[in-house]
Write a protein that binds this DNA or RNA. Structure first.
Length: 540
DNA sequence: AAAAAAC
């Protein structure tokens, strides 16, 4: 399977004239690299602003610890300061390796990858493309697909290669797998007269219904004016596909894992013709609650030529190991730095003492002018519901709520209101944390402290998308103290500043964390007793 | 370390 790389995607507005001049600039910079060596020009200035996801990176990137766990850095003889690496050209890097070449023999694409901070590993990694037109030269891209892409205002390709792709939030991962898949499938199965077997050829998995739906919408945009059958898998669509003839006309299925597993077990779905399997938000799909389901889907995909790909902005070591076990001879691509948010997002943390002080703080915030729409995260469903009610009672306009305890219709309606710009304040749980792309969101508030670094990175990644900047505020209480430092490190790595005293916090020992847990539990039990909820105690 | 999400 031919693999290729996309480099970056632009936002919603598209001016053909501007696009042209940007492309010329871009190409110029690549064909004459020696100029950029001598000239003290920041190479990044040749990037169109939408593409420069790291434009505010100066401060923070250098602070990343030398001993970071990113394996992509291990090939360097010593770890140079990130800031100087950023200005370093391909030539300089080679001198560093003792290579006397003037760079002309460097593997094609290395300079480009360096400039856009993409690292690629694996055998026979094809050179990246830098504009979509390069695809036409190197691959057989159906014309309709290409023109549908242009009609949808995609400006630049983004980092992608089949198999393991790690790229920050809002950098265009969805397109980077949809486009190659649709291109490689070539034509809808209904027009192929059996040459490609029968049955669905691509499965896209996502951890939430909302995300699956969003991927579906993106997919439909690329399928305009072609007879693709793209199915957003649900109870309803599953039942229309009980008939094998109907099933054989389907090209792409987008689903959450459990829905798919249910159909497989009922014998109402066969995945033996699947050529492309994508795990979006892979680390989430590979964590313990989803793992068995995902493995069942994978083992149902029996076609020998299947290409599997995992995508996420975060991939902790455990998840990566699982992923590597699933993938065959994978290429691993990292855009920017793994497990690090974009410097486009300016992050702050706010001390609020205890839970009771959170609402007053938030209301103070709302007393000042703010930039809707706003996304607020809470730790539980009831807290999301009650905070939304509380805000409405306090006169905040157009407050909405979304969590998985609501009905499908309620959830769908909430997302549509958000998409139409009718929600100004959306209070939500982890459901909204990953993948969701609401273009206008300029600010995220973590009302409740996130339960992991990954959760933090994904939550704040709802803003700062497609090259726009964003703001993220995180409330923390005394109880959150043991986890504060790990989040503070994330802020530092991505260019936001952190008060000194937080950095001086001792690294919490496992014992201390345990004690905090016990205190928390005791408090909860006491609170439950007070309101006579003994059932709540038993549950725990 | 822990809630949420998946049917």
């Amino acid at each position: 399977m031919e693999a290729f790389q996309l480099l970056s995607r632009g936002g919603a507005r598209f001016h053909k004239q501007r696009f042209k001049s940007d492309v010329q600039l871009f190409t110029h910079a690549v064909t004459k690299p020696e100029k950029s060596v001598n000239a003290p020009v920041n190479q990044d200035s040749t990037l169109p602003p939408e593409l420069d996801f790291f434009k505010y990176a100066q401060g923070g990137r250098a602070k990343r610890k030398a001993g970071n766990t990113d394996p992509s850095s291990s090939s360097a003889p010593s770890r140079p300061d990130v800031r100087s690496k950023r200005r370093k050209t391909n030539h300089e890097t080679e001198d560093f390796d003792g290579n006397e070449d003037d760079g002309d023999d460097a593997p094609e694409g290395d300079a480009l990858r360096e400039r856009v901070r993409v690292t690629a590993k694996g055998s026979n990694v094809p050179p990246p493309i830098e504009v979509f037109d390069d695809l036409l030269d190197r691959f057989k891209i159906p014309h309709r697909l290409m023109s549908n892409l242009m009609d949808n205002h995609y400006k630049y390709p983004t980092g992608r290669r089949d198999l393991a792709a790690i790229s920050p939030t809002g950098t265009g991962k969805t397109l980077s797998y949809l486009f190659p898949i649709m291109s490689l499938l070539g034509a809808p199965i209904s027009s192929l007269k059996g040459t490609e077997g029968s049955g669905v050829r691509a499965i896209l998995l996502a951890p939430t219904r909302e995300l699956a739906h969003q991927i579906y919408n993106e997919c439909l945009k690329l399928a305009v004016r072609r007879k693709w059958r793209v199915v957003l898998y649900s109870k309803a669509t599953a039942s229309t596909l009980r008939d094998k003839n109907a099933r054989d006309k389907v090209d792409i299925v987008i689903s959450t894992p459990l829905r798919l597993v249910a159909s497989i077990q009922e014998g109402n779905l066969d995945l033996n013709n699947v050529r492309h399997l994508v795990l979006d938000e892979a680390d989430r799909l590979l964590d313990s609650e989803f793992l068995a389901q995902v493995q069942e889907v994978i083992s149902a995909c029996t076609h020998p030529e299947i290409q599997k790909a995992v995508f996420s902005a975060t991939l902790p070591a455990g998840a990566e190991q699982l992923a590597m076990g699933i993938l065959r001879n994978p290429i691993r691509i990292v855009v920017g730095l793994k497990d690090t948010p974009l410097p486009l997002i300016s992050q702050t943390v706010t001390y609020v003492a205890d839970d009771a002080s959170k609402l007053p703080s938030l209301l103070t915030y709302f007393a000042q002018p703010y930039n809707p729409p706003l996304l607020i995260f809470t730790s539980t469903q009831p807290r999301a519901t009650s905070l939304a009610e509380e805000l409405t009672l306090n006169g905040i306009a157009n407050v909405d709520c979304l969590h998985a305890g609501m009905t499908k219709k309620e959830r769908d309606d909430a997302v549509s209101r958000m998409r139409r710009g009718e929600s100004w304040v959306m209070v939500s749980t982890e459901v909204m944390a990953r993948g969701m792309d609401f273009k206008g969101v300029r600010e995220v508030i973590n009302y409740d402290f996130p339960t992991s670094v990954q959760s933090y990175i994904h939550r704040i990644g709802r803003t700062g998308r497609a090259g726009r900047d964003g703001k993220a505020v995180t409330y923390f209480t005394d109880e959150d103290a043991p986890y504060l430092k790990s989040i503070a490190n994330v802020l530092l790595q991505s260019g936001s500043s952190v008060p000194d005293w937080i950095l001086k916090l001792p690294k919490p020992s496992k014992l201390k964390k345990k004690q905090m847990g016990k205190i928390k539990r005791a408090e909860t039990v006491n609170a439950a007793r007070k309101i006579g909820r003994n059932d709540a105690i038993k549950k725990r």
